[in-house]
Nucleic acid binder design. Sequence first.
DNA 1: ACCTGAACACCGTTCAAGT
DNA 2: ACCTGAACACCGTTCAAGT
Lengths: 219, 219
Amino acid sequence: MEKKDGKRRDKALSRDQVISAAIAILNESGESGLTFRTLAQRLVTGPGAIYNHVRNKEDLLAAAADVMIQSALSVNRDELAPDAAIRAVALDVFDIIDAHPWVGTELSRAPWQPAMLLIFDRIGANLQALGVPDRAQFHAASTVTNFILGAAAQQAAAIRLHADGAQRATLLSAAARAAIHQDKRSSPFLQRMAGNLTEHDDREQFSAGIDMILRGIRG
Amino acid sequence: MEKKDGKRRDKALSRDQVISAAIAILNESGESGLTFRTLAQRLVTGPGAIYNHVRNKEDLLAAAADVMIQSALSVNRDELAPDAAIRAVALDVFDIIDAHPWVGTELSRAPWQPAMLLIFDRIGANLQALGVPDRAQFHAASTVTNFILGAAAQQAAAIRLHADGAQRATLLSAAARAAIHQDKRSSPFLQRMAGNLTEHDDREQFSAGIDMILRGIRG
DNA sequence: ACCTGAACACCGTTCAAGT
DNA sequence: ACCTGAACACCGTTCAAGT
């Protein structure tokens, strides 16, 4: 990968450049690929220089995730009906995490993260038109957001497992298979769902979850 | 803290002992307090010995979380109506994470984790009695579980912030306050909810979320 | 078979010294 | 004011050597 622009030769290093370089590394190599040393190398500087532009690694990851979510939610959904708009926002988040799992991991690492608040806002913006009473809108938006965060973290973790596991593909991890096959009497529901667990489509499962919650928040 | 039993003097180190010691450290000092060195010190052995009983740190954390969730869900809820039972299971999980935030962080780190499957099973076990059609039960259980995982991760992260931030108490972090106060035009919903964000009760918010989802999965 | 603990290959972060 | 990069204080994990 070449540097994106020529600004570096005159020694001007900016916060945006640092974050962009971090995103590039994260998208190429995942979370484990991003260290202050690899990042400094890409920016042709020393690791200490990065601290002039971000407070620490947590700050860097939060800023990177915010850029990704902003980009994923930049499509205008104003012409959609409120329930379709909420579904669209949720699926936009799902798709960016499916493509870049590190975003999903990061979303639930810090609370009150800009990226998380942006999702919360975009969901909430459609509740009035959906007919949700004013006093219920805060809980409704937080319910949808928490569902998205939980599903995002699971999806990110599942993809991470895929990535370095290679051949197991759609199979559950060994630990889960063990859990399913032990205790046949004490977990009848899990036994009954074993087929769905191994064969379901993650995106369809996510979409169905949003639909159920929408039915519920509508009252 | 003294060792829990006298078994160690005769050199018998078991997987259960390793996991119990790890849980003790996690509950006392949080995730950052648990290293193979501190754990080995508590077990009066070398760090390498631990690898005879757990595969790696990920395996150790998953096993520790499973013990905590099993204990939190060991209360029998069979006498409750199905919706009350689901609410009780969810609040049991919330409360254990409120008391021991590391459990919430761990739950969404690995997919198909025994602890997560246990929650999924306990939720799902009540869906038949709730009148959810067979074909919708998988999605219903996964929706509730994903909501719980998302809320758990947020709650855990918020408590972690509390712990080392000290005085900020019920205040949002500086980053979130900045996000709320900038872009007043582009995030009207967030602006409108600023008061709720700083003053809401986390447990009540969680409980309201469960209620909304229950209304939705009932169809 | 299990323990021991030094060693390996890393981390994030700091800070004196430069420009 | 910002960069540089060595140094600090750690990590998880491995593995020869012991018992």
